[in-house]
C-alpha cells in the first residue's frame, strides 16, 4: 500500500517536473511597486532597448533568440568564457562594443514585483526564468563569476564552466562608480 502510494507520488512528481520551465510569470501588482515599468525603456526598432534610468543599451533578446518577440530560435547557454567571446564577436544592430553586464548593471533589469521571470516581459520578451552571466569575477575562489537568476532575482556565484544564459549590454552607465570625484 505504502509502495503504491510512493509510486503514485513519484509519478505525480515526474508529471509535474517540467512545470517550472513552462511556468507563467507571476506579478504581485497590487502588493509591490514596479521597479522596471515600461516607461523606463525606449524600445528601438533594431532590437535594442535603451534604459532611460541607467542610460545603458541592452539587447532585447537573450543570446540565441531573435525577432520582435524573441520567438525566433531558442535561448542558448554558454560557459563564462564563451559568453565573453560571444559579446566580443557580436556585431548586432550594426556595431561592436557589446559586452557582458556587471552584476550591478544586470541587477537593474530586475522587476522586483514579479517572478518566473523577474523582468519586464513586454520589453524583454522570452527571457528564460533562469541564471544569466555577469562579467563580474567572484573574488572568493578561482574560476568563479557572479550570476543573477531571473526566476526570482537571486544573485549568486558559480564556476565559469557552468552553462548559463546571456544578455548583452553596451555603453557606460550614467552613474558609474568612480566617475564622481
Amino acid at each position: 500500500m505504502r509502495k503504491a502510494f510512493l509510486i503514485l507520488v513519484s509519478a505525480a512528481l515526474l508529471l509535474h517536473a517540467p512545470a517550472p520551465l513552462m511556468a507563467t510569470q507571476t506579478c504581485r501588482t497590487a502588493d509591490l511597486p514596479r521597479s522596471a515599468p515600461p516607461e523606463r525603456y525606449l524600445v528601438n526598432g533594431d532590437g535594442t532597448i535603451r534604459d532611460k534610468v541607467t542610460g545603458l543599451l541592452w539587447k532585447r533578446c537573450s543570446e540565441g533568440q531573435g525577432g520582435e518577440t524573441c520567438a525566433n530560435g531558442k535561448a542558448v547557454t554558454y560557459t563564462w568564457s564563451d559568453a565573453v567571446a560571444v559579446a566580443q564577436g557580436s556585431t548586432f544592430a550594426g556595431g561592436n562594443g557589446w559586452r557582458l553586464p556587471t552584476v550591478s548593471e544586470l541587477a537593474t533589469l530586475l522587476e522586483y514585483q514579479c517572478t518566473m521571470p523577474s523582468i519586464n516581459l513586454t520589453v524583454f520578451p522570452g527571457t528564460p526564468a533562469s541564471n544569466f552571466w555577469s562579467a563580474t569575477p567572484y573574488a572568493g575562489y578561482q574560476n568563479g563569476a557572479w550570476n543573477i537568476n531571473f526566476n526570482d532575482g537571486v544573485h549568486d556565484n558559480s564556476s565559469k564552466n557552468y552553462l548559463l544564459y546571456v544578455r548583452l549590454v553596451k555603453g557606460r552607465a550614467v552613474d558609474a562608480r568612480g566617475d564622481v570625484k
Binding site: S104, T136, Y141, K160, V174, D175, R177
Partner: peptide, 23 residues
C-alpha cells in the same frame, strides 16, 4: 534622475579574470 531605490554603481572589482582565474 536615478530613482531613489535603484542607484547603479560599479562593483568595486579591480582585478581581471580569464577562462579560469579571477584575480
Amino acid at each position: 534622475p536615478l530613482a531613489a531605490g535603484a542607484p547603479l554603481t560599479g562593483t568595486g572589482v579591480t582585478a581581471w579574470g580569464d577562462g579560469s582565474a579571477t584575480r
